[in-house]
Design a protein around this nucleic acid. Structure first.
Lengths: 339, 339
DNA sequence: CTGTTAGCGCGTTCAA
DNA sequence: TTGAACGCGCTAACAG
């Protein structure tokens, strides 16, 4: 009952041909007679022959598997991104090995290590927010395992990445608010350590001051560690300023949700006393009574798809990019305005 | 520059010992002299030796990889479940290969096939909602690849599974509403084809009539195809009844969201004119002004964890369950009441 | 058109 | 305590 899966050796024996003949026949090699070819293929079908991928991986030094490392699967942004990756990879017969770093650098390193040992052909990664040491990425490179970064990009030279030009998103957000007559625009940014935070801050200041000549009040700028408490504290800071602000741009929708909740608890009328604009455009926000008036859509599915496309191109024998210049794909964010 | 990763052969050569000595030394085999052992281990460390998992998988017929097949990664329930699976598996040095069926039977079959070819050691799956043919599962069984089903369980004999006793959740929901003096309780169920729908309906009727002796009005029972439109239509049916209902139990939170939206648009006061109870307990609901008053929590993370635990036990040389009786783990749902 | 064979990296006998 | 040798399933180079 413990039927071992059939191998090409078995088929070869039964047909009194050599294993290589069987192998070639199954691969539709041109140098095999039609007669033998069909005989082989028929028997293979009968015996439910399935190639042993483990053996092939071993032999070819190629596993047809790509590793995907994300901070957290349960965040909508990342699970959507992985959808994009998976859909694209499946098309090309690649498998997906996943790992969650839980935003911990050591965990991330360990995942990279096991993935390397498992001989994934390439890696797509959104780096943990606290990662500052990148030797594990260099190690992959040394082992000829290509990496495509997405969304969270480390500061390294010559890497491939796909990311959203968050600055443009911020610009759109600021301009949108200005058009709505807002002048005192607050910012609840993410942790300073994140590039994503710096990008937002830079674009916020740039758009506000350089482009629109609106003076920046440093008190209007604060940040949260992304926890509910951190966000509430940030809100309390902003709302207690003498100079009142009429709009707040938040790091993302989750922050916006907590901020809005804070506002409501403190009897501040959302969308009247204060408006919110955020990043991510989570579908659920459309169910709120007082949603952020706009949210910057970052297209995680597309980012994932694109990252997979780049990686598979890198993996193909003839990368379309023959000069081996790093891929830098920028996804343009869009400001989604809530009715 | 294209440094090949070091192998035990390399180490053996450099140290003028045999490969088997190296192999044993690295495995801390007792029959190796302390001197040689340390020499080997030192050099291995220097050379950044890492065992080639592909080779080991091939040799041992074991990949230390488990396949996880889900309908859809972007659904919060499943991405949370996979978190549980991953966290548990990582602990035990197992890797996760994922695949999305997108609720399509053929896709599911194909994923099973590739996973089998890739020689995953076992599979955890939540079956596609339309799957009616289960031969691919039998095929896995024939190949000695154990399967653990979770949440969506096919009607098969002798399978291992972990699931939520949804009937109890429904019972709690109904009883909760009755305690709140509701007597006319509507139900917006899911598609009839889903077992999950039948379970809910059965428990709804059972609790209402058999246990609490409240007559069932068939008009109070309707269903949605889970689209926004379907839910709105269901709502319109329920709200236009002569006999007014004061509470509605919905198939899940997404349905509840659409239903609540419908109510608001039609000036029906949520939580006054009508109350909602649903399933899933999505975190986002806590941000609503008028959330469902309660939601049945199904603990996806725990379900995932448990499924992984069962599978790894099945995979271990000495399954704690020596009689090989199928595992049937039931997670008790909880009614989460919104403040 | 087909067969023979080496070897991918490793663990594991069996012998010494 | 160590080494030599085999084989896992498959592909590809070489030989007919």
């Amino acid at each position: 009952m413990e039927k071992k899966s059939t191998t090409i050796i078995e088929i070869a024996k039964r047909l009194n041909v050599s294993v290589s003949t069987v192998s070639r026949a199954l691969h539709d090699h041109h140098s095999i007679g039609l007669r033998t070819k069909t005989r082989v293929q028929q028997l293979a079908a009968e015996l439910n022959y399935e190639p042993n991928q483990a053996a092939i991986s071993f032999k070819q030094g190629k596993t047809f598997t790509i590793g995907v490392i994300l901070p957290n699967l349960s965040e909508s942004f990342f699970s959507t991104a992985i959808c994009g990756i998976e859909d694209f990879a499946k098309e090309k017969k690649y498998n997906i090995l996943i790992g969650q770093s839980h935003d911990d650098e050591d965990t991330e390193k360990q995942i990279v290590q096991t993935m390397k040992n498992h001989r994934v052909d390439g890696v797509i990664i959104s780096v943990a927010k606290n990662s500052v040491n990148y030797e594990h990425f260099n190690m992959l490179k040394k082992n000829n395992i290509p990496i495509v970064f997405f969304d969270r990009i480390p500061k390294m030279e010559g890497i491939h990445y796909v990311a959203c030009k968050i600055e443009d998103g911020m610009s759109q957000a600021v301009n949108f608010l200005i058009k709505q007559k807002h002048r005192n625009i607050g910012l609840i940014n993410g942790p300073d350590t994140l590039v994503a935070s710096k990008d937002r801050l830079g674009a916020y200041m740039n758009t506000l001051y350089k482009k629109r000549r609106i003076k920046i009040n440093p008190d209007f700028i604060t940040s949260t560690d992304l926890t509910k408490e951190g966000t509430q504290a940030a809100m309390s800071r902003l709302m207690s300023l003498k100079e009142k602000i009429s709009a707040i741009i938040t790091f993302n929708d989750y922050v916006a949700l907590d901020a809005i909740q804070y506002a409501k608890k403190n009897n501040i009328k959302v969308n009247e006393d204060i408006c919110f604009v955020s990043f991510a455009n989570l579908p659920i926000c459309h169910y709120l009574d007082t949603p952020p008036i706009a949210s910057v859509e970052q297209f995680p599915y597309t980012q994932g798809e694109k990252a997979a496309e780049i990686l598979l191109d890198l993996l193909s024998d003839s990368p379309s990019n023959t000069k081996q210049e790093p891929y830098h794909v920028i996804i343009e964010p869009t400001l989604a305005v809530n009715n």
